[in-house]
Design a protein around this nucleic acid. Structure first.
Lengths: 175, 175
DNA sequence: CCCACTCGGTTCATTCAACGAACTGACCTT
DNA sequence: AAGGTCAGTTCGTTGAATGAACCGAGTGGG
């Protein structure tokens, strides 16, 4: 978004947060990071995002301390992008927004459900586990399960296939 | 944002939510609606948004059922924009994002704090009232209080002045 | 009744960001 | 040496945001 001069006048911390997170594509990249998508090429294929925009957003997110770039092999040199603590905290924004979208604009059955990994209970709209005394469930303790709904023409990129195939712990590599 | 064709491939409900709420300025307009800003002219002065963009966003929000347009006087004919139930539910997204921005990017003291109107306790980061048994506090029960922090050069538009002057119940008209 | 003013827009030329296809360069495999 | 993969960069085109000017309905004052 790069809200620039217009947001300087806005005192609200919301404006400052939106300068980072409100840019086009950014929140979808962060969502994919929760799903365990870590490499440039996988993000590219899964999001259908222009290469230049992806490179720009990743640089912005790393600079803001939301993602960290981590060398995972040396030959050939390859980096992966991992959520930092600051990035993981964005789950408290992403999850409610997903639920809101689902409540009001879903066309059919949910494509994905989120369960508390330790007990298997589906997490409620507020992000809590009804079984475990209503505690807030942290992303690392959440499993994304393929839901009953299916899109008309499902995507066939590796990430989409893997997410459809089996339950998967958030933040763990999906591929 | 009008994510258009790129988001059709995205099954996730997050993508559909972002088509509406992820556009530039949209979430700041919704925030102002929580603050009780209801008229075109007040939004214009408070947000420093181009007139054409504001008109476009308001139309989109009304069409999406997030705001409702309501005739509040007949001569001259004047409309105000009010949050619908669907819009009010966005508090679960806006509040965590504000808190996240405050935790990580605040420069000084908070400009605004949110208190549970019935007991006066400040609401925690998860949006609950510690005093009242940790219940989720709904926007209608929240009072925004001017905080200890002050910007270098405070805005002087009527909305900013009113919000700085005194505590104010969310969703109630600020002017 | 005319003039000035307010409010809530629309119009339009300019600027800036997004898009998508092509290119680059480091490294690997055969 | 040739071809492939990966992670970008470059660049021309398209589309959206910006901001200033304009517009039209309605009001209030002289």
């Amino acid at each position: 978004m790069a809200l620039g001069k217009n947001y300087e006048g806005q005192n609200c911390t919301l404006a400052r947060a939106l300068e980072l997170v409100g840019e086009r594509w950014t929140l979808l990249i962060v969502r994919d990071a929760f799903y365990g998508v870590r490499r440039y090429g996988d993000l590219l294929a899964h999001l259908d995002i222009p290469r230049a925009v992806l490179a720009d957003r990743l640089a912005t997110l790393v600079e803001a301390g939301i993602l960290a770039r981590h060398r995972y092999q040396d030959s050939p040199p390859r980096d992966e992008y991992l959520l930092t603590e600051r990035g993981v905290e964005l789950w408290s924004v992403i999850y409610p927004l997903m639920r809101w979208g689902e409540r009001h604009f879903a066309t059919g059955q949910p494509l994905r459900t989120f369960r508390h990994a330790v007990c298997g209970t589906e997490i409620d709209a507020a992000g809590r586990c009804p079984t475990c005394g209503g505690v807030d469930v942290q992303p690392a303790d959440i499993e994304a399960h393929p839901g009953p709904g299916a899109p008309a023409q499902p995507r066939e990129d590796p990430v989409s296939v893997a997410l459809r195939a089996r339950p998967h712990r958030l933040l763990q590599p999906v591929l």
